[in-house]
Amino acid sequence: MNRITQLFQQQSQKLLNVYFTAGFPQLTDTRIILKSLQEAGADLVEIGMPYSDPVADGETIQDSNQQALENGMSVKMLFEQLKGMREEITVPVLLMGYINPVIQFGIEAFCQKCQEVGVDGLILPDVPVDVYEDEFKAVFEKYGLLNIFLITPQTREERIRQIDAMSEGFIYMVSSASITGAKTGISADQETYFNRISALNLNNPRLIGFGISDHKSFERASQYANGAIIGSAFIKAIATSTDLPQTIKRFVKGIKEPA
């Protein structure tokens, strides 16, 4: 059974998924951050594959992408860094990024490498559900990879139902139409959207992302879904850290526990 599916069967509330950009702040930090997040209590880890034009991301994550690329990070390098990770990493691991670098690497070769190193799923925001179904679904399934789809406040119910029917793992609920890191906290309009999605009684669990930055917003999001995804706030926390394990321990504790 895929680790993502297993996690949601074992735990259905207040799951914390933390995003970080591979190769940031330093090229060799990827495994340190991954291990530290697991030890700190993150339930899932989402590793960003740096890309020169991350259209869904705000300035913080864009800057981390640029720095990682300047550091020398690439898809090939990332797979080298993740080799053997399952000897010490038990939490589900997802790769998040854009389809161009995956196509350049080769779809089948990419999925095969994911399976080899122990990646559980992918988040590719610029791949429409229809394109995924026609072009990528078969090879993803061949290598045991779950594809995580995003929905937004503008996604039509018909499309949400289609995504729910095709999904395994969880659905990524984008909390607003803005880019990552543009807003913090949860508004009344967002709560209306969360309630609307809850009323659909979808088959798949949901995690809420965009705008989650502290314990309060994590708790609020967790009232409407199975947990939340944090990215920009974490990138800011580690950007100038001189002791990544300690910084990460404090950050995760601050999200999961009241001050």
Rank of each mutant, 00 (worst) to 15 (best):
2 N>K: 02
3 R>E: 06
3 R>S: 14
3 R>L: 07
3 R>C: 09
4 I>K: 03
5 T>N: 07
6 Q>T: 15
7 L>V: 12
8 F>V: 13
8 F>C: 13
9 Q>C: 11
11 Q>A: 12
11 Q>L: 04
15 L>C: 04
16 L>I: 07
18 V>G: 02
19 Y>F: 15
20 F>P: 05
21 T>L: 01
23 G>M: 01
25 P>S: 01
26 Q>K: 12
26 Q>N: 14
27 L>T: 04
28 T>W: 00
33 I>H: 01
34 L>T: 08
36 S>D: 01
36 S>V: 01
39 E>H: 10
44 L>R: 01
45 V>L: 04
47 I>F: 13
49 M>F: 10
50 P>F: 03
50 P>T: 01
52 S>Y: 08
56 A>D: 00
61 I>W: 04
63 D>Q: 14
63 D>E: 08
63 D>M: 04
64 S>N: 05
66 Q>D: 03
67 Q>V: 14
68 A>V: 09
70 E>T: 06
75 V>I: 08
75 V>L: 04
79 F>G: 06
80 E>F: 14
80 E>S: 15
82 L>S: 02
84 G>M: 00
85 M>Y: 08
85 M>K: 05
85 M>G: 13
87 E>Y: 08
89 I>D: 03
91 V>W: 10
92 P>R: 00
94 L>D: 06
100 N>I: 10
101 P>F: 01
101 P>A: 01
103 I>N: 10
104 Q>F: 08
104 Q>W: 03
106 G>N: 06
107 I>H: 10
114 C>E: 02
117 V>L: 02
123 I>R: 02
123 I>S: 11
125 P>C: 05
126 D>Y: 06
127 V>Y: 02
128 P>L: 01
128 P>T: 02
134 D>Y: 09
134 D>Q: 13
135 E>F: 11
138 A>S: 13
141 E>L: 09
143 Y>P: 05
144 G>N: 01
144 G>H: 00
147 N>E: 08
148 I>T: 07
150 L>N: 08
151 I>C: 04
151 I>T: 07
151 I>K: 02
152 T>P: 08
153 P>G: 08
159 R>Q: 12
160 I>P: 07
161 R>D: 08
163 I>W: 05
165 A>F: 12
165 A>W: 10
167 S>D: 05
168 E>Q: 15
168 E>K: 15
173 M>Y: 14
173 M>H: 06
174 V>W: 10
176 S>Q: 09
179 I>Q: 14
180 T>I: 13
182 A>Y: 15
183 K>H: 15
183 K>I: 15
184 T>M: 07
186 I>W: 10
188 A>W: 12
189 D>Y: 14
189 D>Q: 15
192 T>R: 14
193 Y>I: 11
195 N>W: 00
195 N>E: 14
196 R>T: 11
198 S>P: 03
199 A>G: 04
202 L>P: 11
203 N>Y: 06
205 P>L: 05
208 I>M: 09
213 S>R: 07
214 D>A: 12
215 H>I: 07
217 S>E: 05
220 R>N: 10
221 A>M: 07
223 Q>R: 10
224 Y>R: 04
228 A>C: 07
229 I>M: 07
229 I>H: 09
229 I>T: 09
230 I>L: 13
230 I>Y: 07
236 K>M: 02
241 S>C: 12
244 L>N: 05
245 P>M: 00
245 P>T: 00
246 Q>E: 13
246 Q>G: 06
248 I>R: 04
250 R>Y: 05
253 K>V: 11
254 G>C: 10
255 I>F: 06
258 P>H: 03
259 A>D: 15
259 A>F: 11
259 A>G: 12
